[in-house]
Design a protein around this nucleic acid. Structure first.
Lengths: 203, 203
DNA sequence: ATACAATACCCCCCAAATGGGGTTTTTATC
DNA sequence: GATAAAAACCCCATTTGGGGGGTATTGTAT
């Protein structure tokens, strides 16, 4: 029997999930938490095989929590279960050690299939996400570290010279980065740049 | 027995909800839809007393769908059930005719209490939302029609003169509006303006 | 009656962003 | 050891935005 733990702040969802998993006979729910900190306290002793993890948690980001859990308990397989269907979120989640990714409007059977697959050491993506990730690379936007850093500072409202001071670069360099960002994200100006960044969850 | 219909694209949640409502003995689920169009087709004959409605639907906005249902079937009480806890969303939902508002991490009992209350013709807000709405007016941002319109166009990347042409106003007027928006939303510049607008779901 | 909010308009000045063209160095990757 | 991508830098010209000051006209709620 696969031991499953759940972290999600939506109580109706966790209750529904518990019932669903119990009814399947495939796995047993050993712990339910509604925040990362709550989950952190119980992981040590309940030792689940699979952790169902939401990206939006009330305390810290599910992305960071995924990395944290994987560092402390590398043997626990993490299966993301969330509403986000953006490339960058899935990409980061997998890079942070997740073994699978489900979106919340996936079929019930997919959730059980996902639990089974990741428990067996496989990588599992639900249908919609699988299609998303297989799309040609050009349709996805991927920014370098520096570019992401710049984008964050721009979205915080810093001017070029303020950014330059902050990260010890020439204002001219910042200008180049911004030009590149406008090009890469196909944005006409800063307003659109910020909108796209937030919509694609790049920052 | 209260007749309840549900519209939400998260299948796990709708299944959980169905079980929960059935187990309570308070109400009976007469219909479950995963999109507005699906729901639209069934509302006519299943005639629910209460409609549990999510704000994010795959086809159209739950806000618009709320208004639509209220126009066609004024006797159906609408109870919003969603993750959004922003003032502007709640405000719009209530203005569009919703009788109640629940957030998805609310307690199970609150959902049942909400169904009971709105079926009885009352207005019901879950605890967290109640607190949010009771906060002094000054802490909420509320924009006029024109200001919202402007903000949308700014976020689309139009320059002042482009906006002026589009809505037949003087470019100087647009400048004034923008200055006001920066003040009202306490934004240093356009980048922050757009970020705040998206974060507070004002546009 | 009058005060208020919303709407629409105008001026000046300077700072900041955008668009165009570039170069060099460092750091992975094959 | 070649190659490519990322990171850092530079100049010119123009447009756009932001900060400061305003005014006038509506409608509407008290």
């Amino acid at each position: 029997m696969i031991k499953v733990a759940i972290v999600d702040d939506h109580k109706i969802l966790t209750e529904g999930l518990q019932g669903l998993i119990a009814a399947s006979g495939l796995a047993t729910v050993v712990n339910v938490a509604h925040s990362a900190s709550e989950c952190r306290q119980s992981l040590g002793f309940c030792k689940p095989d699979v952790l169902l993890l939401d990206v939006s948690l009330p305390d810290i980001s599910g992305l960071d929590f995924c990395k944290e859990v994987k560092t402390e308990f590398p043997e626990i397989k993490i299966l993301a279960l969330t509403t986000h269907n953006e490339y960058s979120i899935v990409r980061q989640m997998l890079d942070n050690g997740a073994s699978g990714y489900l979106i919340k409007n996936a079929m019930t059977e997919e959730i059980l299939a996902g639990i089974k697959a990741v428990a067996a050491g496989e990588i599992f993506l639900c249908h919609e996400i699988d299609i998303l990730m297989k799309r040609p690379k050009e349709t996805h936007t991927w920014l370098s570290h520096r570019e992401k850093e710049l984008l964050k500072l721009v979205a915080e409202g810093l001017t070029n010279s303020e950014i330059a001071e902050r990260i010890f670069l020439s204002p001219e360099t910042i200008k180049s980065y911004r030009k590149n960002l406008l090009l890469k994200l196909d944005a006409k100006n800063t307003a659109v740049l910020v909108r796209i960044a937030l919509e694609k969850k790049l920052i």
